[in-house]
């Protein structure tokens, strides 16, 4: 039987790294369980996106931080092979150390010579208790970290927004003069905000389990897609970053059956 030749495809690695806050406060109101669930539930969708992007090898890792920071998944793991082990909460918030761990891995080597922009997702519900600034400075010294898509998810209302914003980098919209509508000068809004003033360049506020799951799903599917095989472009897509970010998920109305903790 003749067949299309079995050729090896050109591809590049796409490193996706979760940085998960496991401090004691995450134990409250089921936040830790909600995060474990959200990540576990997001994996099939992430695997599907990886499958639809044969030009990318999606490799996942995770760092957990509490009293100290540790690699929770140290080996870059193809998403279809990934099994999420539950994170446990307890301790303080060594976020700076977590950034140092990631910085060491984004140095070349161990980073490959050629890759797609890495995706770093920082998830936290509180304030760093160690030297965050030093960790961030170390991270941002790495060219691969500068190129990375850096997202932050604030779990509940006690997260340090300032610190999360520093991790993401400056929000271009925040620098507009007061009162000016973003994109008012051009035809289209510069940012795909999802229609409610939210922006992927700002910390994403997850106030309940449903929203947390939506943001995790968005980061692990839409953002991975954008960083590997870009989707259709429309006018005004020129954003400040090296990867145009996809629209945030629409704000969904909570249905009774999957409401997690209502207030955190």
């Amino acid at each position: 039987m003749p067949t299309f030749p079995n050729v090896r495809l050109a591809n590049r690695p796409l490193h996706f790294i979760y940085l998960c806050d496991c401090s004691g406060s995450m134990a409250a109101q089921g936040k830790m369980q909600a995060l474990n669930q959200a990540i576990r539930q997001s994996l099939p969708g992430m695997a599907r996106v990886a499958r639809e992007n044969p030009e990318a090898r999606v490799l996942v890792r995770a760092v957990r931080f509490a009293d100290r920071a540790h690699w929770h998944i140290a080996e870059p793991t193809p998403v279809e092979q990934l099994q999420w082990q539950d994170l446990q909460a307890g301790g303080v918030t060594a976020m700076g150390e977590a950034l140092e761990l990631v910085a060491a891995q984004l140095a070349s080597p161990p980073m490959e010579e050629r890759a797609l922009p890495p995706v770093l997702v920082l998830i936290s519900d509180g304030q760093p208790t160690d030297d965050f600034e030093a960790g961030l400075a170390l991270l941002l010294r790495q060219p691969w970290a500068q190129k990375a898509v850096r997202l932050a998810i604030a779990v509940g209302h006690d997260a340090d927004q300032e610190v999360l914003q520093q991790f993401i980098g400056p929000d271009p919209e925040a620098q507009l003069p007061a009162g000016e509508v973003p994109g008012a000068s051009g035809e289209m809004p510069r940012h795909r905000t999802g229609g409610s003033g939210r922006s992927p360049r700002r910390p994403l506020q997850a106030s309940n389990a449903t929203t947390l799951a939506q943001y995790i799903q968005w980061a692990s599917t839409a953002v991975v897609g954008a960083a590997s095989m870009p989707a259709s472009r429309v006018d005004g897509d020129v954003s400040g970053s090296n990867i145009p970010l996809p629209d945030l998920p629409p704000t969904m109305v909570d249905m009774v059956e999957d409401v997690g903790p209502v207030v955190w």
Binding site: K147, I243, P244
Partner: peptide, 22 residues
């Protein structure tokens, strides 16, 4: 061909394949 018509030696020179590189 199962390949991109513009990815050859010039792509090899690109470390991070991002928007400016594309």
């Amino acid at each position: 061909t199962r390949h991109d018509p513009f990815r050859g030696a010039l792509e090899r020179e690109i470390r991070c394949l991002d928007e400016p590189a594309r």
